[in-house]
Design a protein around this nucleic acid. Structure first.
Length: 152
DNA sequence: GCCAACGTTGGC
DNA sequence: GCCAACGTTGGC
């Protein structure tokens, strides 16, 4: 079982939206490295932290979710109405994948990016390493557990 | 809004 | 295959 951190801009899809929906499709991933991780490494039962990106002071980890469906073709790539549509993705060989997640817990307290950066414990966390813009990243159980504790 | 750090595209 | 131009991410 693996642990992940998954980013979403709250203006696009926030943890409040996931709380409302209880279960959601994590779609719109348009990066090959991330797609490959979803395809090859992410499995039902894996745990993931929900991270609000591009959210000013509210940027940080806001809760926990669980993977409830393995990677499958992301329908938004073929949706003419979607901002994530990819006209170059072949219908018979979809380029992009999505997973389904369900909400496990909303943190009572935001674990802000600045807080995470200020702790040496997280020095080797991919999220805070320079130049890492991937929207999905694996993290160690010890980092996962610590972040969960900080959110309570 | 700025900009660093990427990733992608397409001409050659 | 190289690389310049362009687009995107995401912190600040």
């Amino acid at each position: 079982m693996k642990y992940w951190i998954m980013k979403s801009e709250p203006s696009e899809y926030s943890i409040a939206d996931l709380k409302r929906d209880k279960r959601g499709m994590w779609d719109g991933i348009r990066n090959y490295q991330v797609r490959n991780m979803l395809r090859d490494d992410m499995r039902v039962g894996d745990m993931a932290l929900f991270y609000h990106s591009n959210a000013g002071k509210e940027t940080g980890v806001v809760g926990v979710m669980k993977v409830v469906k393995n990677a499958y073709p992301d329908p938004t790539q073929f949706d003419p109405k979607s901002a994530h549509r990819d006209p170059k993705s072949p219908l018979d060989n979809p380029r992009w994948l999505a997973v389904d997640v369900s909400l496990v817990e909303v943190f009572s307290k935001l674990v802000s990016l600045s807080e995470i950066k200020s702790e040496n414990f997280f020095a080797d966390l991919a999220l805070v390493r320079k130049g890492n813009r991937l929207s999905v990243m694996e993290l160690s159980k010890k980092h996962f557990d610590r972040l969960c504790k900080m959110g309570k």
